[in-house]
C-alpha cells in the first residue's frame, strides 16, 4: 500500500516529505535511548506480520497493522514506519526513496490518530477494548487509503477514477484489519497487559 516512484507531482512529494519529517522529528524526541530496542524489535515484528496473507473469500489481503502500531507506539510510529519503508525501498523497491516522506506520512498519520482516538478506550473492559481495537485497525487502513487517494487526486484530476477504484478494492482489507486488530488487542490484554499500560490481568 505504497505509492510508487515517478507518479506524484513535485508539490505533493515535497509536502509529504515535510509532514513526514515533522512527524519523525516528534517521534524521535519522544523516543529516548531506553526505548530504541523496544521500538526497533517491535518494528521487526510488524514488518514480518505485514507479510502474512489473510484469506478473504477467493483472494487474500496483506495486513498493514499501522493502527495497532499507533496504539502501542503513538508518535513513535513515525520513525518506526520510516525505517520499515526505507528497508522496503532499498531491498524490494516497494514504494521508493523519493516517496519515502509521503508514504511515511500516509501510514503513520492514521496510526497517531488511532493512538489518540482508540487507545484511551482500551481499559480493563473487554467489550469496549474490542470495539476500540476494531476501530484502530479499520482507521489505520482506511486513513492510509484515503490519504493515498488524496495524494493522487491532488497530483491530477486524471487519477480520480483510479483513486475511486483503490478505495473500493480496499474495503475488505479495512474490515479484515479491524477484526484482526480487535482480536490482537484482546489477546494482548490477557497475555501482556503492560504493553497496553494496563496494570493487572483481565479475566476472560
Amino acid at each position: 500500500m505504497h505509492i510508487s516512484e515517478g507518479i506524484l507531482s513535485a508539490p505533493v512529494l515535497l509536502a509529504g516529505a515535510a509532514l513526514g519529517a515533522g512527524g519523525v522529528a516528534i517521534g524521535l524526541r519522544k523516543m529516548d535511548y531506553t526505548h530504541i530496542p523496544e521500538v526497533a524489535v517491535l518494528t521487526s515484528a510488524f514488518f514480518v506480520a505485514s507479510l502474512v496473507r489473510v484469506p478473504v473469500g477467493p483472494g487474500s489481503v496483506h495486513l498493514a497493522l499501522n493502527g495497532l502500531l499507533g496504539v502501542l507506539l503513538g508518535w513513535m510510529s513515525f520513525p518506526a514506519i520510516l525505517v520499515a519503508l526505507s528497508l522496503q525501498a532499498v531491498l524490494f523497491q516497494f514504494g521508493g526513496i523519493t516517496t519515502l516522506g509521503v508514504n511515511t506520512f500516509n501510514m503513520a498519520a492514521p496510526a497517531v490518530a488511532a493512538y489518540y482516538v482508540c487507545r484511551p478506550l482500551i481499559r480493563n473492559e473487554r467489550r469496549l477494548a474490542a470495539v476500540a481495537g476494531f476501530s484502530a485497525g479499520a482507521l489505520g487502513v482506511a486513513g492510509a487509503v484515503v490519504l493515498i487517494a488524496l495524494c493522487l487526486i491532488t497530483t491530477g484530476e486524471e487519477f480520480l477514477n483510479l483513486s475511486k477504484m483503490l478505495v473500493a478494492v480496499n474495503i475488505p482489507a479495512v474490515l479484515v484489519e479491524g477484526a484482526l486488530t480487535a482480536f490482537i488487542v484482546l489477546f494482548l490484554m490477557k497475555v501482556k497487559p503492560e504493553l497496553l499500560n494496563l496494570k493487572e490481568n483481565v479475566d476472560a
Binding site: 521487526s44 515484528a45 489473510v54 486488530t181 494482548l188 497475555v191
Partner: peptide, 28 residues
Amino acid sequence: TDVRTYRAFAWLLGMLIVRSFERSRRIY
C-alpha cells in the same frame, strides 16, 4: 474466511508481538 482463522492469525501475531517485546527487554 472465518472467525476461527482470523482469531488464530490474531493470536499468532499477538504472540509475535509479545515475544518481540520480551526479546527487546533482554537486548536492552
